[in-house]
Design a protein around this nucleic acid. Sequence first.
DNA 1: GATGAATGAGCTTTCATTCAT
DNA 2: AATGAATGAAAGCTCATTCAT
Lengths: 208, 208, 208, 208
Amino acid sequence: MSKLGRPTNCAGVDTAQRLLIEARRSFATQGYAATTNKKLAQSVGITTAAIYHYFPSKTEMYVAVFADVQELVCKTIEASISPDAEISENISNMVDSLALLTVREPAVVAFVMSVSSEAHRHPEVLKAVLPVSGRIGRILLQMCERAIERGELNPKISAQSLEDMLTVILSGLGRFNMVYKDARRTSELIKSMKLLLVGEVFRVPSNA
Amino acid sequence: MSKLGRPTNCAGVDTAQRLLIEARRSFATQGYAATTNKKLAQSVGITTAAIYHYFPSKTEMYVAVFADVQELVCKTIEASISPDAEISENISNMVDSLALLTVREPAVVAFVMSVSSEAHRHPEVLKAVLPVSGRIGRILLQMCERAIERGELNPKISAQSLEDMLTVILSGLGRFNMVYKDARRTSELIKSMKLLLVGEVFRVPSNA
Amino acid sequence: MSKLGRPTNCAGVDTAQRLLIEARRSFATQGYAATTNKKLAQSVGITTAAIYHYFPSKTEMYVAVFADVQELVCKTIEASISPDAEISENISNMVDSLALLTVREPAVVAFVMSVSSEAHRHPEVLKAVLPVSGRIGRILLQMCERAIERGELNPKISAQSLEDMLTVILSGLGRFNMVYKDARRTSELIKSMKLLLVGEVFRVPSNA
Amino acid sequence: MSKLGRPTNCAGVDTAQRLLIEARRSFATQGYAATTNKKLAQSVGITTAAIYHYFPSKTEMYVAVFADVQELVCKTIEASISPDAEISENISNMVDSLALLTVREPAVVAFVMSVSSEAHRHPEVLKAVLPVSGRIGRILLQMCERAIERGELNPKISAQSLEDMLTVILSGLGRFNMVYKDARRTSELIKSMKLLLVGEVFRVPSNA
DNA sequence: GATGAATGAGCTTTCATTCAT
DNA sequence: AATGAATGAAAGCTCATTCAT
């Protein structure tokens, strides 16, 4: 009869932050649809109603996670490349950085990988995410254009194509890491991928 | 009042087939969770109850689609490679074949790409799909092992690693095709990827 | 584990009709907001989900009730008036008919009385109800115009004004009946109202 | 982190008054159920929790608004009638006064009109409002009784019936003003209603 | 006097599934 | 082979209310 309202003794320390991180993890592993407010709230230790104190809707929560994650990934990529270095070196460093990120923050990478399908499946998400997306692509494209200007590439290849190749490889690697969580196998794979980049995979010594 | 039962004039022709194909398309584009019996039934022109004449449950329907799709993809891959050819040629042909399949049957490729996450998200699906999965991987692994036996590869690279690289590239390409449905861009990308495989992307002729 | 779905032994006789009538009653007495699917379903003996078998949404259900009720009221009014009779007689008959309807189908009249505020409060309802509303007003207006053409009225009074007066009196009576459900008092009130119409309420014969 | 408590610079001036007036407006136009603490707080520029400094519950807030409004309406009516005047004159003045009030304070009249249904719909409200209601009716009844004692009326009509007629007309007019907010139409309507009271609406000069 | 954080109850709606016809 | 009617469960979200600060 009179036990409604906020209960006594409820810390509320950093609930917002915990919510954001748990949401990221769940969106990444379970997907947008399967991430229910109830499970989320339970994980964070609050009720579903309390979620709405921090985000006006599930969609807005997704967008907040997206912005957060994009920021993190962009910073990671930007920190791993240098405008002065050769592109092959930049790519190599970038792959290492992202592999490390995948180990340290699996949810971040998994979330990024999932955005495109989620956006395709949930129009509201697409609409909200679109205006702030595309940052990663722009960083890669810039790097490719710089490399072409300096003549580091086979002239048959356009900047757009190179960026697409990088996208293919990075997303392929990301996917691989999500499916097979095997550090040793991954590290061997990355070594092989680097050999591929320098053209030393097939019929190596070739012959005289 | 007395209009229950099967209506006259409803050619039961191929309902099963149409259901399977529509399910494939929807599972691929919308995902397992967002594919509801209602929408499915509407697309096919029946009621939700009628679905249960063809499949005992949604999960079983997914499994049926999976088996169908896996068969198709395996046949496509097997038809594109030859035990006698060099692996680089096989890979090249395989990439072309799968690109073609992506254009002709986008849903098939999209479905394959989505299986791993769906299985991860829905334990029932995983349980049902697991026993019949893995066929594609086995085909690739065999091809890699054959190439190694014949000395077509840099000896630093193991069969497992090579298979993983192929997985990375094929899935990366598949993902690319799903996100950017641009034939011209895709064809240019594939040309570039082939140059990558033969090591002619970075600092090309370089020397004298 | 396997007790979901439709239960055995569930008659389903006229559920649609019962739902419509119960909805009318509840919308009229409780209002749109306070009419919850749960209470409605309980009154009819089904579950809330079953409601959606008959109406796609609560708003649509309201609209269906509205159309039904408007039809009924219009027929009642039209049956009580005659193009050949004098307007004072028509009004008298109309008042009697509507008083009778109020006794026999209180929910019908109460619903009509409530429509305007509900529509004002719930924009979705307004939007859905607007295109089919206004019929009652048109019937009254026609009657008033006919009376004016025949010179049955004080020429100072326009058709619009007369219609408005009727609206005022009829809605006032309707409201009265809803608040004080006292047959004797109502019947005496109606007698007095008829005296008012013929100008025999105040300072009666007055003169000598 | 340490910004709780009453913020500086928030002139607590008249918050109570603004809250009461906004509540009246919202209860009148949106209804009791649709008037949420959140919207109310936003309109007034405070938080929902702050409301509870002024009223212990939503019901109590409604009751406070009711008392305020009843006081205002009763004073308006009492100021418009005189024990010495003839009832027809009193009625005429009362109608004018209330019409004016409807224009100046639409929410006040609208609120009064809505009380009976709200009370019917929300038992708590009924319980709280009942003991202080009925004042308006008593004023009207007294006026009617006085008129009868003085022989100003057709003896066929009882005081109760006359009061009921007044209720019907006044509430009908109130409702009309709420639905059609058209000053010109309303003023014409009121003129016609006055003609009705003196019996000059139908078959006017009648004949010689 | 006012806030931010939180709650339990309840709302409309959707879903996969069942069953008699 | 297919339908219409119905279900229990659960989803996203809102509400009036509470409490420490």
